[in-house]
Write a protein that binds this DNA or RNA. Structure first.
Lengths: 208, 208
DNA sequence: ACTTTATATTGAACGTTGTTCATTATTTTT
DNA sequence: AAAAATAATGAACAACGTTCAATATAAAGT
């Protein structure tokens, strides 16, 4: 045993992160353990510590992948919407965010699980990944409202708001709408609630 | 040993939750363990399982306390602001939320750490605790905009938005404002960023 | 008052986790 | 071919949530 494989440091890093991705995809972030990764890639858990200093840092790298994927999806939607009215573009972007949160739920949840606030500040590349998630909205606002001097801050406000609505809604931390025009049980009805909220938010925001 | 103490089930529950509170206050939610609670209250960890079925449920009860405390603070601010203009009241409420998030940070973070989404739906009392956090804003909107037919949903939208801004901002998930009118390093400057964002959000919202 | 039943608490155990590190196996350099 | 450097291992550690038979105490029955 103790057979030294032909994996460069970079290949091993890729192997580990890829395995981590699969684990989260099939079992959620709570199943992401050093031993489970080791089992998947045919290494012993300790090997991971040759590449990553801790599981927390590894998690941060997975999160960076999630953010990158999200940024890509948002970027595509943004491009495709070019030429359509502002409000439609914003709602389309928000919809893309919701779709991502639902499709990649375990990864999306992992972005907010655990408190990696301190850690993030030591890993500067992470800030760039965040930046790129916010960028598509900023781009739209720049294109559609070229004379707005506070585009950047506005984009942060609107994006954070959409996130807040989506997060509380998707994690069940939002009180149910009392209105009866939604069947509370049906998931289509539930999604309609989100849709109305975001549409209204964007509408209000565009009016200003 | 094995001395049976004079603590009713209710007293014990209170002891446990109170100890849990202290532990989180001084060391963050990651220090909240059955063994640590046991040490604090002079019981063995297993005793906790006579009262709570799991540490997750215990955490949910702590969260309910946090929400209750938050709701109280928001309620007070709401009452005190009665008679002042709408926009000032909304901003005051948002400020109170930020103050809470900062003062009780470990507790506030615990509300969003871990995924208790499934669990929450089995514990119906938790929904009520959430409801009461949203209530103050709904009250304000009802008082100030009595002829708005969608007050409830509007309050959800605005509150979620404020939360989204505060959350991303406080956890370092917001990209820095490029504008130079803030010294990025000073915490006063940082807070000013939050202040501007929320003020603008509320302003935009009120205009509609 | 004594015995029996019920209950509260314990202590030890199990399986799992992140993490460390001396040892071993392999590659690279001399 | 020997020596130095590196990669991977396996075993160990402490701490975690959780379970449960054993035990000590209180309450109930006689």
């Amino acid at each position: 045993m103790a057979r030294r494989k032909d994996h460069s440091r970079e290949e091993l890093k890729e192997l580990i992160l890829s395995a981590a991705w699969d684990i989260i995809a099939s079992g959620g972030v709570s199943k992401l353990t050093a031993r489970e990764i080791g089992k998947k890639i045919g290494y012993v858990p300790g090997t991971i510590y040759n590449i990553f200093p801790s599981m927390e840092v590894l998690q941060l790298h997975v999160n960076a992948r999630t953010l990158k994927l999200l940024a890509e999806k948002l970027g595509k939607v943004t491009e495709k919407g070019r030429g359509t009215p502002l409000e439609a573009r914003l709602i389309g972007l928000a919809r893309a965010y919701l779709a991502f949160a639902q499709t990649y739920r375990p990864f999306w949840m992992a972005l907010f699980a655990n408190d990696l606030t301190d850690l993030k500040q030591t890993q500067s590349w992470y800030g760039q990944a965040i930046e790129e998630v916010f960028l598509p909205l900023e781009t739209i606002l720049r294109e559609e409202c070229p004379d707005n001097p506070s585009v950047r801050e506005d984009s942060h406000i609107l994006w954070s708001s959409v996130h807040g609505i989506t997060y509380l809604w998707a994690t069940g931390k939002m009180p149910p709408a009392k209105e009866s025009h939604v069947k509370k049980t049906s998931s289509a009805g539930k999604k309609a609630e989100w849709e109305r909220m975001v549409t209204r938010l964007v509408g209000v925001f565009c009016a200003a």
